[in-house]
């Protein structure tokens, strides 16, 4: 199973682009999704994200994301159609306005999550930190905190997997086909996960300090992260997306 937010090795144009360029592209796509009031354009933007994912070798991850987001999307869709009572009832309790807004919410969730996760999967977290410190002059401590939080997500995912395995082997019905029951079973396990995370974070802080964390500044990084022609081209093209979305 491909892990979420872990770096995926590759040799495509996007792998080679500046880390900040990739974040820029993700934000541009998100902005376009946000500005777009046209359902077809939103679908087109999602298809663009999927295409980028497939082209950069993340097909498995994209499929997994779509399945996961579809589940969340269905729940959000139903909630929207229940809340929104404007317009004419056309199916059970659902109104036409409710359905329209429901679809919009679903498209936004998918349209936001996909580009961000795909771009983060194409970027090494250390590169992103270094580039942000070097080019954007973000204080290192600040950048480290954020990137460490991102780094811990796959570690938590792994821990959660180990915990659910251990509990399943004990007889907790994590293998139930009912997703609500599964969610209910998972909540009590958050406590042990949090406790182990706090002690991990503390170890990580100590280890970083013992390797000169406080000495680091914007000139420390060995690798340089210059913007090349490729980066400007990619940023230029992606900047068109929110503009088009705004006009349409």
């Amino acid at each position: 199973m491909p892990a979420i937010l872990e770096y995926h090795e590759g040799n495509t144009i996007l792998h080679k682009a500046n880390p900040l360029t990739k974040i820029f592209i993700a934000i541009a796509i998100c902005a376009a999704v946000f500005l777009s009031s046209n359902i077809y354009l939103s679908i087109a933007l999602i298809l663009l994200s999927v295409a980028i994912g497939v082209a950069t070798g993340l097909a498995r991850l994209v499929r997994l994301l779509i399945l996961g987001l579809a589940g969340l999307g269905i729940v959000m869709f139903v909630v929207q159609t229940i809340i929104i009572r404007d317009g004419q009832t056309i199916f059970l309790f659902m109104t036409d306005e409710g359905i329209r807004r429901g679809i919009k919410v679903v498209l936004r969730i998918v349209g936001f999550a996909l580009p961000l996760i795909i771009m983060l999967s194409l970027t090494k977290i250390t590169d992103l930190t270094n580039a942000a410190v070097q080019k954007l002059h973000i204080p290192y401590k600040f950048a480290f905190t954020i990137t460490t939080a991102i780094k811990f997500i796959p570690i938590f995912a792994h821990e959660m997997k180990m915990i659910t395995e251990a509990q399943t082997a004990r007889g907790v019905e994590f293998d139930t086909p009912n997703p609500f029951r599964k969610l209910k079973l998972m909540l009590p396990l958050m406590a042990p996960l949090l406790i182990s995370s706090v002690s991990k974070a503390d170890d990580a802080a100590l280890a970083a300090e013992q390797r000169g964390f406080y000495l680091r500044d914007d000139k420390s990084a060995f690798k340089q992260y210059p913007f090349k022609a490729l980066d400007f081209a990619l940023m230029g093209v992606s900047l068109l997306l929110p503009i088009i979305a705004f006009i349409l």
Partner: peptide, 29 residues
């Protein structure tokens, strides 16, 4: 004095070996 902690997963900061090696060297200038 260099320390290798018991929990090495927490000690490792990078995604690959080369970047992990770089970290301390960069910081110590």
């Amino acid at each position: 004095l260099g320390s290798v902690l018991q929990n090495i997963d927490a000690q490792i900061v990078a995604a690959n070996v080369y970047d992990e090696m770089l970290y301390g060297l960069e910081n110590f200038g």
